[in-house]
C-alpha cells in the first residue's frame, strides 16, 4: 500500500550504515583504550625496565640522586595496606550485607542501603583529608600507644607493632582503605545474597535451623562465587586507590618490619613524585610502577569479573 520512494529508501540505508558504524566504532574504541593503556605504559616504562631488568622488582632502593630505582618497597606497601584493608573490610562488609538482607526491618532497608552506597560515592580525596586530620591523630593518641604496649610484647607478631606512634603509616593507610572499600564489598555481597531463592532458606528454617545456621549453611554456600567476586572487586579498588593513601602513608621507600612505620605504595609514589621527577630514568621508573600496578589490578579485576559473571549466568539459567 505504502508508496516507497526509492531515493528515500536509499537515504535510509545510508543513515543505517552510518549509525551502525558509529556505534561499532565506539565499541571498538573501548577496546582500543585498554590496548592504548597497555602499549603506552610499556613504551613509557621501557627505559627503566631495560636499564634495571628484573632487579627493578626485586630491589628496595629508591634513590633519585644516584638514579637507582627498585619497586620492592612500593609493591610491599601496596600488598600490605590492601591486606590490612581486606582483613577489616571483608568481615564488616559481610556483616552489613547480612544485616541488610536478613535482619533489617523493611522500612530501614532502603535508607541504610543508600547510605552505604553514598559512602562509595564520596571521592577518595575526602577520605584522604579525613584520614590525615582526624583518623591519624586519633590512632596516634589512642590506638597506637596501646598496640605498642600490648601487641608489641607478644612474641612473633610483636615486631609488627614496634616503634614510635607516628599516626601516619602503613596501618593508618590500611584503615582508610578499609573504610573506602567497605561499601563496595557490602553492596556486592548484599546483591549476591539477594539472589538466593527464598525456597532454599525456608527449607532450612523448616528443618529447625536458626537464622545464623541458615545463613552459614545455605546462603553462603549458595553465593560463594559471588562473595569471592565482590571481595576481589574490593581488593582491586584497594590496590589501585591513590589519593586516600597518599595523604596518610608517609611516602618512605623502605620496607619496615613495623606496621606503624611510614611506607609507600605504588599509586602514592606515582602521585607524590611524578610531577617532581627529573630525568628520564626517574619518570620512566614511575611509569614502570604504574605498569606493575596495572598488571596486578587487571589480574584481580578479571578474576572478580569472571566469578561474578559465572554467578549471573547461573542465576539466569535457574529462573
Amino acid at each position: 500500500m505504502a508508496i516507497i520512494d526509492p531515493r528515500h529508501a536509499a537515504r535510509q540505508r545510508v543513515y543505517e550504515v552510518a549509525f551502525r558504524s558509529a556505534t561499532l566504532a565506539a565499541a571498538i574504541l573501548v577496546l582500543m583504550i585498554l590496548g592504548g593503556v597497555t602499549i603506552s605504559l610499556i613504551h613509557g616504562s621501557w627505559p627503566a625496565l631495560s636499564h634495571f631488568g628484573l632487579s627493578f622488582v626485586t630491589r628496595q632502593v629508591w634513590n633519585p640522586v644516584t638514579e637507582k630505582f627498585g619497586a620492592l618497597a612500593a609493591i610491599y606497601g601496596t600488598l600490605v595496606t590492601s591486606t590490612i584493608a581486606m582483613v577489616i573490610a571483608v568481615p564488616v562488609g559481610f556483616g552489613i550485607a547480612l544485616f541488610l538482607t536478613e535482619l533489617c526491618p523493611p522500612i530501614l532497608k532502603r535508607p541504610i542501603g543508600v547510605a552505604v552506597e553514598l559512602l562509595a560515592a564520596v571521592p577518595s580525596i575526602i577520605f584522604g583529608i579525613w584520614g590525615l586530620f582526624v583518623l591519624a591523630p586519633l590512632l596516634q593518641r589512642h590506638v597506637q600507644p596501646w598496640l605498642i604496649e600490648h601487641a608489641g610484647a607478644i612474641p612473633g607478631i610483636g615486631a609488627l607493632f614496634k616503634g614510635p606512634p607516628f599516626g601516619i603509616g602503613i596501618l593508618t593507610a590500611g584503615f582508610v582503605l578499609a573504610i573506602m572499600v567497605l561499601p563496595f564489598i557490602a553492596a556486592t555481597v548484599r546483591d549476591v545474597f539477594d539472589t538466593v531463592p527464598a525456597m532454599l532458606k525456608e527449607s532450612g528454617y523448616g528443618l529447625g535451623a536458626t537464622k545464623w545456621e541458615v545463613i552459614w549453611h545455605v546462603v553462603v554456600p549458595h553465593s560463594r562465587a559471588g562473595i569471592v567476586g565482590g571481595v576481589m572487586l574490593g581488593l582491586g579498588r584497594a590496590l589501585g586507590e591513590t589519593m586516600a593513601v597518599t595523604f596518610v602513608i608517609g611516602n618512605a621507600h623502605r620496607i619496615s618490619s613495623s606496621l606503624l612505620a611510614p611506607g609507600t605504595t605504588i599509586s602514592s609514589a606515582i602521585a607524590n613524585e611524578f610531577t617532581e621527577a627529573v630525568g628520564d630514568l626517574y619518570t620512566s621508573s614511575l611509569i614502570a610502577l604504574g605498569l606493575l600496578l596495572f598488571l596486578i589490578t587487571f589480574a584481580v579485576i578479571a578474576a572478580a569479573q569472571a566469578m561474578l559473571r559465572r554467578l549471573e549466568r547461573r542465576a539466569l539459567s535457574s529462573v
Partner: peptide, 25 residues
C-alpha cells in the same frame, strides 16, 4: 563479550593509570 569485559575492567581500573596513559599520549 570482549567489549563488556574490557569495560568492566576499565570501570574499576585505578584512575591514576588513566592519568599516566593520557600523560604518555
Amino acid at each position: 563479550t570482549a567489549v563488556r569485559f574490557i569495560n568492566d575492567v576499565l570501570l574499576s581500573a585505578p584512575s591514576i593509570i588513566i592519568g599516566l596513559f593520557i600523560y604518555e599520549i
